[in-house]
């Protein structure tokens, strides 16, 4: 193991698995982007934060939206500002570089030290978006046409890319990344996660709630599975309402906290009314 390479083993508040550590360390050592996929609520975004905190590096965040273009991440040329300034003559409009605003990726490249660049929810953008970034991610440099200057990374940033398990990404893009799929937490791990959020709560209620939650998740007809954050909310509501015990039946208290789609509520009611094993 080379000495210039720092290993990642999670932080006190971010629990990792052997598989995740291995993937992170591969990405660090091979200087490749790490693509993290997984259901919402499995801590994809938190990974980048934990990595930055654990290695004491700056985190630069690029939240991708449906309207985001690859160019936005590199730089934006503020033509309107320049035109306005040209009217009044109080600024030097000949200096084009003053009107070049670096995007998150441009900022990451121009820092002196190593940074963590998080490209969050890449699947939200247009289908061609990842392909448009290939070159920049490979070479960690790009050309600013307006100033005829190159922005090149002095130290290659650590790139973490997250994606929900929904849209397929292009092959050429995938081949350049180290890939890791974050599993949904096991019941044991979930218990520890819940304990972090609700430290003082009766254990039997937590056990029952978690049990019910996983049973609900295993129902095939439910489309939008409840995630960790919904479980945390649900337990908070149960505690507030003073519910003593829960089990999976058709009068499950505060079901709306867990299932948000009307068709899922219908599917839930159908399944429990359909003479299944829960109807004793």
């Amino acid at each position: 193991m080379s000495d210039d390479f720092t290993r990642f083993t999670g932080t006190s508040t971010y629990l990792t698995s052997e598989a995740l550590e291995s993937a992170v360390n591969c990405a660090l050592a091979l200087e490749k982007p790490l693509l993290v996929r997984g259901e919402p609520g499995t801590g994809k975004t938190l990974l980048a934060e934990a990595l930055a905190a654990g290695m004491d590096l700056e985190l630069i965040r690029w939240g991708v939206k449906s309207s985001t273009r690859a160019q936005d991440g590199l730089y934006v040329y503020d033509t309107v500002q320049r035109l306005y300034d040209s009217r009044f003559g109080d600024k030097d409009v000949n200096d084009v570089s003053a009107y070049i605003k670096l995007g998150p990726m441009g900022q990451a490249f121009s820092r002196d030290g190593r940074v963590v660049l998080l490209i969050d929810e890449i699947d939200k953008a247009d289908i061609e978006f990842p392909n448009d970034l290939l070159n920049e991610l490979d070479r960690m440099r790009f050309w600013v046409d307006e100033t005829q200057q190159e922005v090149a990374a002095k130290v290659r940033p650590i790139v973490i890319i997250t994606s929900n398990a929904e849209k397929e990404l292009p092959d050429a893009f995938l081949r350049r990344c180290v890939f890791h799929f974050i599993d949904f937490p096991s019941q044991d791990l979930m218990k520890r996660i819940v304990a972090v959020h609700h430290p003082r709560i009766e254990e039997t209620l937590v056990d029952q709630a978690i049990e019910t939650f996983y049973e609900l998740r295993s129902m095939k007809r439910i489309r939008k599975h409840p995630s960790t954050s919904e479980l945390i909310d649900w337990i908070a509501v149960l505690k507030r309402a003073g519910v003593a015990d829960v089990r999976l039946d058709k009068n499950l208290p505060f079901l709306g906290t867990l299932l948000k789609k009307e068709q899922d509520l219908v599917a839930f009611a159908d399944q429990l009314a359909g003479g299944r094993r829960w109807r004793s």
């Binding site: 598989a19 397929e168 990344c177």
Partner: peptide, 9 residues
Amino acid sequence: ARSLLIHRV
């Protein structure tokens, strides 16, 4: 090997 060879779950 899994994180480098495989790109989708």
